[in-house]
């Protein structure tokens, strides 16, 4: 165990882990919200994320003409580019999420199909989206030219916070907080929570079920799209199967925190991001995934509903 490196690199590892963790948090919000209302793992969420990363890349390279020889932007142009990329990513992911619900899930749900049917439909949708992009891109990774110069916002004794990491952490926190407030405080949010408690009672109370479910997919898509934008800002590269590893990690984070529980996704995502960073150093990078899943299994053995999960019957969004 490499404790000496953990000691000397504690703050860089902490910041890297938090930045990665906030990306996981936002993607796992997409999983946990849909699970909350439909009791369905939306496997297509990883591809919704993937399409968001491509939208970011397409806007920077085709609309703003960034290429391998370009220099990062500054001032108002930088703000404009970042906002357009963020907007494109969020809108693309949200539109795809709503379409996925309409095409792949709604009819099965309204016709009272078996849950396994919805599960297969979710996996099928995920494969169709992923393979479609694979064919279009010939499986070749797409590197996104650097738009944002990665300077340090502050640096003390060699330890600092980079602008892309700061944006990811701050924006990730604000977005999560906004979604949490929306779900707990607004009328529409209360409708989502009502549906997650009891579909039947919500219908009797006059809640438009289809509208609430579409709204859930829309919010999940918007948040996942924001995560895709942040991923591209930090890592600057995507590929047709980028969503697979991120999706597995975010789903793991959701389960770790307690799937169906929004705040569980928050703590689960951060815990996973930090665990990946620190285990990579402590045991070697090749052990990262093994240790993360061993920790997950141990947590589930002790707390079957995750760290912050409630019993399934009581699950709340």
């Amino acid at each position: 165990m490499n404790f000496a490196v953990v000691g000397s690199q504690f703050f860089p590892l902490l910041i890297n882990g938090l930045a990665l963790g906030f990306i996981y948090v936002l993607v796992s919000v997409g999983y946990t919200m849909v699970y909350g209302v439909l009791r369905l793992i939306n496997f297509a969420n990883s591809e919704i994320f993937m399409l968001g990363t491509f939208a970011t890349s397409i806007v920077s390279t085709t609309v703003f003409k960034f290429n391998i020889d370009s220099h990062p932007s500054h001032g108002m142009k930088l703000l404009l580019v970042l906002l357009c990329c963020l907007l494109a990513s969020m809108v693309t992911s949200a539109v795809v999420a709503v379409l996925v619900e309409l095409i792949a899930y709604r009819r099965l749900r309204t016709k009272g199909a078996n849950r396994l049917g919805s599960l297969i439909s979710a996996i099928g949708t995920s494969i169709v989206l992923s393979e479609g992009v694979r064919i279009l891109t010939h499986s070749i990774p797409v590197a996104s030219p650097r738009v944002l110069s990665k300077f340090y916002v502050f640096k003390i004794h060699g330890v600092g916070l980079r602008i892309d990491q700061m944006l990811t952490i701050v924006f990730g926190f604000i977005l999560f907080f906004a979604v949490d407030r929306f779900v707990t405080k607004t009328r529409l949010g209360k409708a989502i929570r009502a549906v997650s408690m009891s579909e039947e009672n919500s219908r009797l109370m006059g809640i438009n079920l289809n509208r609430v479910i579409s709204l859930t997919f829309l919010i999940g898509g918007l948040v996942t799209g924001a995560a895709a934008f942040m991923y591209m800002t930090v890592y600057e590269q995507t590929v047709f199967n980028v969503g697979f590893n991120i999706g597995i990690a975010a789903f793991t984070a959701a389960v770790l925190g307690g799937i169906g529980n929004l705040r569980g996704a928050f703590y689960g995502g951060l815990a996973l991001g930090l665990a990946e960073e620190f285990f990579s150093v402590l045991l070697g990078s090749q052990w990262k995934e093994i240790t993360v899943f061993v920790v997950l299994v141990l947590v589930l053995l002790l707390r079957p509903n995750g760290l912050f999960g409630e019993a399934v019957q009581q699950t709340r969004v």
Binding site: N2, A4, V5, P12, E276, F278, S280, S285
Partner: peptide, 21 residues
Amino acid sequence: SDTVIAPATDYSATASKVVAS
């Protein structure tokens, strides 16, 4: 020495180890 199973997304932990060494 480190082994990172490719394709990987995040090399920041490995980079931290290199800097510390």
